[in-house]
Design a protein around this nucleic acid. Structure first.
Lengths: 286, 286
DNA sequence: GATGAAGAAGAAAATAATTTTCATCATTTT
DNA sequence: AAAATGATGAAAATTATTTTCTTCTTCATC
């Protein structure tokens, strides 16, 4: 079980009463729900159309239609087609560990791709392309993803910075402005340091992009452009491993799209930086 | 190819002119089409909303919405149906880019798992567990992997260091000795800076581990314990993206194995570090 | 070649669906 | 207990979709 239904299950208990009822109905009758109009769904679940509409948008879908389509896409994949996420416990054999991690990573990549909103990707690509300066925020594991993204952007001549230090993140955010981009990475979407930096950047007029786990969270709520990476089930140990892979996967798609859409601008730079590294080594006597 | 798209292709030539145009557009931009409203689709395909509506109903769908949902469901392919590695060129659509990267990453993870030598993994786990100090070497993209590995090791109380700076790598390697571990990450297996550091560590008596692409290469030749991550086909552009994912995958397996085999030693530490981060934040007033 | 029948297609009207606004009610805070 | 906050549904506004109606084209027949 993954994605939308998973997010519903996790967030159900933090919802308003009627929204909980609605979430419960959808969880129990998902296959039926996707065929219902908003009014029908409201009727069947004992709520109102207004509540359903608000519900979808509070889960950060663009509309009820958007929600319904993404749910439908999620439901077509028969559960049997792919093994689901597996947790890791003490005393497993090496083989079962490798197997479980493989399953988690594969799943997390395909879930992420499936739920990727290409319109948002396009917007992110455009924002990055047009950006004067790019700031990347992320702590711990997500800091790594931010760093990876920075490396890629620098290689194509973008002015991109990542600060592992949370004070420097804020300091840097303070000097952003219109035409700049602030890109926040956070598995939970609630990391305070990352949130602060993004908020600061937004207040200065920078375009904000978020890459968080699926579902409503404070960081993506703040962002102009919202990207999501699949999350493991709540309570799963070390969910950040799969999440980090999924986030990198999204970064790869972004970067490749950026390259592909502006091939002539960037590819020569990339080639050049590769050659220069080689040349520099030769000069040192290799 | 199946269902709706197949039907469109077959029936296309028995349709009215505008419907043919519409069918053609949908066949060419299926993934885009499912995100469009009836008016948008009509606009993009050079027809009218009325035509689109009639088109859907003449194909025996209940409504445009019904058509759109079923098409969306059809476009989600099961993992098994995905092709092998794909290269990325200029001017691809976002969808094909996302698809290609997904395919590469999925493939690279399963290849890596399949070819993983669990005996070597076991040896690496033991070496890491027994290590007094662990040095991690890697440049650029592989530096990220090294950094990720360091983060994990530190969280379970290991003395692990990663230096992005090649001079510091050597400096640090110089002070290693028997009972220490030097772990080299390199996509190509030929990165001179990483090779130098590993060589230096080996000469001082440290146990050496390598994580490189498959096949003979100087770094793995030097290492006592050899791990491999799948590489994309030769000549593939930007193979380091998939390779990095594969390397992280191996790191995850290593780390999880380490945890699982010494559960009682490490898991409390991990739990503790997690709680401390939370507590520290609270004290700052959150 | 003119005439009319049949059907294709878009404009506009009608209908339906969705979102937003607004008023009400319940709950919590002061 | 009063005020403030927030949840909710009714209704209004907006938006999307379908149907109707009209025009235009094509093709068969005279």
């Amino acid at each position: 079980m993954s994605g939308i239904l998973q997010a519903l299950r996790e967030q159900q208990h933090h919802m308003n009463p009627k929204e909980q009822i609605l979430a419960q109905f959808i969880l129990e009758h998902a296959h039926e729900a996707v065929h219902l109009s908003i009014t029908e769904l409201a009727g069947r679940s004992g709520t109102s159309a207004a509540t359903v509409s608000r519900f979808c948008r509070s889960l950060l879908f663009k509309s009820y239609g958007d929600f319904r389509m993404k749910l439908a896409a999620e439901l077509v994949q028969p559960v049997s087609a792919k093994p689901s996420y597996q947790d890791i416990v003490a005393g497993n054999t090496l083989h079962s560990i490798a197997q479980a991690i493989e399953t988690n990573h594969l799943r997390s990549i395909s879930d992420t791709t499936r739920q990727l909103d290409l319109t948002e990707v396009q917007r992110a690509v455009d924002a990055l392309h047009d950006a004067r300066r790019i700031d990347l925020y992320g702590m711990a594991t997500s800091g790594m993803v931010a760093y990876d993204c920075q490396q890629k952007l620098v290689r194509i001549g973008k002015m991109a910075q990542h600060w592992a230090d949370s004070h420097m993140q804020i300091t840097s955010a303070t000097s952003l402005g219109e035409g700049d981009v602030a890109f926040a990475f956070s598995y939970s979407g609630e990391t305070p340091e990352t949130l602060d930096a993004l908020l600061c950047a937004k207040e200065r007029g920078a375009t904000t992009i978020s890459l968080t786990k699926f579902g409503a969270n404070r960081i993506s709520q703040l962002a102009d452009i919202r990207l999501y990476a699949s999350s493991l089930e709540e309570g799963m140990r070390r969910g950040d491993m799969a999440s980090r892979i999924a986030q990198l996967h999204v970064v790869d798609i972004l970067f490749t799209a950026l390259l592909s859409l502006h091939f002539d601008d960037y590819v020569p730079l990339l080639e050049q930086s590769f050659q220069e590294v080689k040349k520099y080594r030769k000069e040192k006597g290799r």
